[in-house]
């Protein structure tokens, strides 16, 4: 554990709770892609199966459980409790076009051909693109509430900080995991456009609207 990874994890946790609090306080999930949340749910459930097989640390276990539960609660709020506010007409990204090729890729390109390892690889690949339905939705409606943009910023920052963590680990522990690194770089690149808009608009107190 180093400061970059800890900061990344906190940023990730913050993102998830910003979203939950936004939905809970406003009693609405307007502007939120339920599809992205389902993809993140799949990411956590397939990656954290090792909760049952290997113990790493109390920190690790607690964080995994929080990520899974918080994401399941978010999915419940979007699709059940506040379903009437869910903007499904604008949440039209074809998520299956991500999941199916990624499942194939995880079977073909992995560290080890075993069920848990393939599921872990699937979750890493899937996480890298899980935000696409949300970004697509924002580009379609052309706007995002300020709190939604804080959510996206914290979520993008998390994987960016993980990259710094991997550089640090490479030099201090000679540790690297190229699957995580390549997917993590792709994931961070997806947020670049958004980071630019966030810094130039939201920080200056303007609502975020995307050019059509």
């Amino acid at each position: 554990m180093n400061i970059f990874r800890l900061a990344g994890d906190i940023s990730h946790l913050l993102a998830i709770f910003i979203l939950l609090i936004k939905i809970w306080r406003s009693r609405s999930c307007a502007g939120i892609s339920g599809k992205s949340q389902v993809l993140f749910g799949m990411v956590f459930l397939t990656r954290y199966l090792d909760l049952f097989t290997s113990f790493i640390s109390v920190y690790n276990t607690v964080m995994k459980v929080i990520f899974i539960l918080a994401t399941l609660v978010t999915i419940y709020l979007v699709f059940f409790k506040f379903r009437a506010t869910y903007d499904s007409n604008n949440d039209t990204f074809r998520a299956e076009l991500l999941v199916i090729p990624i499942a194939g890729l995880a079977v073909l390109v992995n560290h080890e051909f075993s069920l848990f390892e393939i599921l872990w690889t699937f979750s890493i690949y899937l996480e890298s693109v899980s935000i696409m339905p949300q970004l697509y939705m924002i580009s379609k409606t052309g706007e995002a509430e300020t709190i939604t943009s804080h959510y996206l910023f914290a979520l993008g920052l998390y994987r960016g900080l993980y990259i710094v963590n991997w550089v640090w680990r490479y030099y201090t522990e000679q540790f690297y995991d190229w699957i995580a690194i390549v997917a993590g770089v792709v994931q961070t690149l997806l947020y670049c456009d958004f980071f630019y808009l966030y810094i130039t608009k939201v920080i200056k107190g303007k609502e975020m609207s995307l050019p059509a």
């Binding site: 990730h12 290997s54 790493i56 964080m63 963590n165 995991d177």
Partner: peptide, 10 residues
Amino acid sequence: CSEYDSHDEL
């Protein structure tokens, strides 16, 4: 033990 045996990151 290979590096990927334990995925210690979240």
